[in-house]
Simulated scan of single mutants.
Amino acid sequence: MRVTSAPPSARQAHLGMLLWAMLVGLSFPAVGLVSEALPPLLLTSLRFIIASLALWVLARRAMDWWPSGRSLALYSLMGLCLAGFFGAMFWAAHHATALSMATLFVSVPLLAFVLGLFARVERLAWRLPAILALGALGALGLAWAESRYGGSGMRFGRGEAVFFMGCLSSALYPVLSKWGLSRGWLSQSAAARTFWSLAIGALLIGLAGLGLEPVANLAVMTGRDALLLIYLGLCSSALTFWLLQRATAALTPGAVTAYNYLVPFVSMLLLFIQQPGQIGWVWLPGSGLVLMAMALLFCNGRAAS
């Protein structure tokens, strides 16, 4: 049976992105439990393949799920954005400090807003940039607080430059999605858009992994690793990217990516659960600014709807 899907309201999109931030924040402990010997790019490719298989059942029910030539080209660019971000992140992890990467990642919502202006899928107004700047300050505050507990310092070198290009790729993904939707090039189904971008991203990341990583290292995967991989594929890839694509139909790229600021807040709460002794006033300024920015973003979205 072929079905069509109506875009969510702004309120539903914001609530979905709150769930997105929680799922992404909870995925970091799960990633940390995966065996370090496993090749990260190939592991990400397998994770995206699992997500694509899960979404295929929903995607194929959409009337416009099969892409045209120009749609496939746009999905390929979106998949390239995913490959660019994850490839840059894994490479930079060995050449950049954690604080530097956390600080650079703060730029994604602002980059998405600027790119959205060029693509004419954002409106030139002062409210959203002000909210993004407030959230960025809060996220920087959380990154600084984390650096006080054994984190490495801030610097900018080759690793940071590569990761910044990855951040640019991450910011471009929702812009391309919104641009394609506004022109009718992409499916109206969030599941179909997620399926094609993840499937092509899995192919590109997998090809990079085959060229850069030892495939034989996959043999050390344990049963626990396989279960974690399935969980990450279903919850941290299929569901999170579906929520992002769903929100893109109702919100602008800057508003969607603003929820990146909530991820370190969720990670902070997990840290407090695992290590209550880490609780301190140093976390309060950043947390307060992030929560204020999210409240303003939600109110701004309701006013715009």
Rank of each mutant, 00 (worst) to 15 (best):
P40I: 06
P40M: 03
L42T: 06
L43Y: 03
S45Q: 06
S45F: 03
S45M: 01
F48S: 09
I49K: 00
S52M: 04
L53F: 12
L55Y: 10
L55H: 10
A59Q: 09
A59D: 13
R61V: 00
D64K: 08
D64C: 07
W65L: 05
W65S: 13
W65F: 05
W66I: 12
P67Y: 09
G69S: 14
S71G: 15
S71N: 08
L72P: 07
L72E: 08
A73N: 06
L74F: 09
Y75I: 07
S76K: 03
S76Y: 08
L77T: 06
L77V: 13
C81G: 10
L82C: 04
L82M: 13
A83E: 05
F85H: 14
F85E: 08
F85C: 07
F86L: 11
G87T: 15
M89H: 05
M89N: 14
F90M: 12
W91F: 14
H95V: 04
A96M: 09
A96L: 10
T97V: 03
A98M: 02
L99N: 05
S100N: 05
M101Q: 13
M101N: 07
M101A: 12
T103I: 15
T103F: 14
L104M: 14
L104T: 13
V106R: 03
V106F: 02
P109Q: 11
A112F: 05
F113E: 01
V114F: 11
V114H: 00
V114E: 01
F118Y: 10
F118G: 07
F118M: 11
F118K: 10
E122V: 01
E122W: 02
R123L: 11
L124E: 02
W126P: 00
W126V: 11
W126L: 11
R127D: 14
P129H: 01
P129C: 01
P129S: 01
A130N: 07
I131N: 07
L132C: 06
L132Q: 11
L132G: 08
L132K: 08
A133F: 12
A133P: 04
G135K: 08
G135H: 05
A136I: 06
